[in-house]
């Protein structure tokens, strides 16, 4: 718990100069966290951190542009902050970053799958070093943390906040693995299988735009081309092709900017594995431009610039 106390005292020190500090608190039940906007010291009591604090709070930063605010970030979230700063979408001097050393967050769908029945209202959760004890309807279930860890944490290369005014906790080691079995399995499929997969998956999409709204790099907000009538990029038709087109809009607007925080997939109410697309695009960006978004300050996203001679783009023989 000392990490939480350290964080609280660090926030208390800076709260006076800030409009608010964004952290997490317990949500509607013990298993879910929700963002917390700390304005007074009294709010600090509700602050929580740990494996249930899944949200990427960098998403809120652009809404506060021009005001001085603080934000609590995990390693992965800090990449989003860096990318926002690099693109001049937020001013570095306006934000105070409270960086955490994170040992992974949970995936709610995985917890749901691991529990014997639909949990409904979870009464209490006890978090140990390797396990979670979840109490539902008087029964306690113990889950291994490694079983319910979010996919992004299994391949996490930046567990400690890269950018931080205050870094809290002891530094964690990056994950050993650097590719996910589910990703490799999907990429190995044939075009026809992939097409059938997306046709089926996209027919579930209800185009709620939760993936877009949760995305820290989607900053157009009211001017998103997906919801504009002129030009009309997308019709209201809820067919797989239109839904896929929306995902293509999202992916292409994030090419070279996506920090792989996984918020789109987490926010999706129908569990579409959106990260299959994002991770694949990021892999291509890394291959061609040797670029990983949000890993260093003063990077330019690769599609914002060019080289006269591209070392890694070779014209195909015609």
């Amino acid at each position: 718990m000392s990490q939480l106390d350290d964080l609280k005292s660090a926030i208390k020190d800076r709260l006076g100069e800030l409009e608010c500090v964004i952290g997490w608190e317990q949500g509607y039940d013990a298993l879910h966290a929700t963002p917390l906007f700390i304005r007074t010291e009294a709010d600090l009591d509700r602050l929580v951190i740990g494996p249930l604090a899944v949200h990427n709070l960098a998403t809120y930063l652009t809404a506060y542009k021009g005001k001085k605010i603080g934000v609590v970030v995990k390693g992965c979230d800090s990449r989003s902050v860096i990318e926002l700063v690099n693109e001049n979408l937020v001013n570095r001097d306006d934000i105070v970053v409270f960086g955490l050393c994170c040992d992974g967050v949970v995936s709610q769908p995985k917890i749901r799958a691991a529990l014997p029945a639909d949990p409904g209202f979870v009464e209490s959760v006890t978090i140990g070093t390797d396990e979670l004890k979840i109490t539902v309807a008087g029964q306690t279930v113990t889950l291994k943390k490694s079983d319910v860890l979010a996919d992004k944490c299994r391949v996490c290369q930046h567990p400690n906040a890269i950018i931080a005014d205050v870094l809290i906790g002891t530094k964690q080691n990056p994950a050993g693995a650097n590719s996910l079995a589910c990703q490799e399995e999907f990429e190995a499929k044939s075009d026809a299988e992939k097409l059938a997969f997306w046709q089926e998956t996209m027919s579930r999409c209800i185009r709620c735009y939760a993936c877009r709204n949760a995305c820290p790099m989607c900053v157009c907000r009211d001017y998103c081309i997906a919801t504009s009538r002129d030009p009309l990029w997308l019709s209201q038709d809820n067919s797989p092709a239109e839904n896929m087109m929306f995902q293509m809009v999202h992916v292409s607007h994030l090419a070279g900017r996506c920090t792989e925080c996984g918020e789109c997939e987490r926010a999706c109410p129908v569990d579409i594995p959106l990260m299959l697309l994002r991770r694949y695009m990021n892999k291509q960006v890394k291959d061609v431009f040797e670029h990983q978004a949000g890993t260093a300050l003063d990077q330019t996203p690769p599609l914002f610039t060019f080289k006269v001679e591209e070392e890694r783009i070779h014209e195909r023989g015609w």
Partner: peptide, 12 residues
């Protein structure tokens, strides 16, 4: 170039 490389994952 990026689009060309990205298309395979969509099944196109």
């Amino acid at each position: 170039e990026l689009l060309k490389r990205f298309l395979p994952v969509t099944g196109i």
